[in-house]
Amino acid sequence: MFEVLSNETLAPNLHRMVVRAPRIATARRPGQFVIVRADRGEERIPLTIGDADPAEGTITLFVQAIGASTRRIVSTPAGGSLRDVAGPLGQPTHIEQFGRVACVGGGVGTAVLYPLAKALAAAGNEVTSIIGGRSSQYIILADELAALSHELLVTTEDGTRGRKGFVTAALADLMADPERAPRLVLAVGPVPMMRAVAELTRPHGIQTLVSLNPIMIDGTGMCGGCRVVVGGESKFACVDGPEFDGHRVDYASLMDRLTTYREFEDAARCAADECRLGEVANG
């Protein structure tokens, strides 16, 4: 059992949880993830390790409540415990001094981006963080990223915070400025966003890494369910990734495979919302 030490809401349906997992806290490197089950019978959910404190033996997880199993995780209060936390899994991010680096995060992807930006900054890189969301309430970790970034740019689709529009517009401006143009771009967020970033950087030959989130079960290379096509080859995101060369990823295939269980997810969401809808209908 893994004790939950704190659980706070960062944005609608997005929680930051600190969990006691000493072995993982010690072994973990930025870019790696864990598989979590709140209890028996739940799905195995892959979650990026947002931060770790080896001295305290704790890891920080950012959890977006989408389906039944993620709802069970975020509903575990401080003092409660998660039955299974396994990791650290996946390849750590390759961290070195690249020079100027742009870290681009969309929505909950910003939580996956945060440990990478932190490690790149600590390695002496000049980090520009660009984060976006639908509206201001979906902008997360802005203070944390501002503290470690040379510059923080915020975009929202509705203009309620920062620049109105998408992260790609802010990135395009950055790239156009010779004083600020990045040597490396990291992009984490919805698949269309990562694809748009990769298409933006491709003509300029700027190395671009994306962190992929395909459907996963064991997280150890056993089932192959998380396979993605990179450079025409099948790769397992859980053991070969989750980061890949953004210019070589087959985004269309990734997006399509992500819809495999849509019917089940819709049914689960309906079941979870049923009571409330019933109340509205009857009220």
């Binding site: 079960i217 056993m222 192959g224 369910g225 096509v229």
Partner: peptide, 29 residues
Amino acid sequence: NLKGVYSANELLTRVNLMEAGRNPAATTP
């Protein structure tokens, strides 16, 4: 990589370990 293609390990893990399709309470599809 089409939808509906499984490795044996994935199909069996879903059904055996995660109880998909054989336990109505299972959350794994």
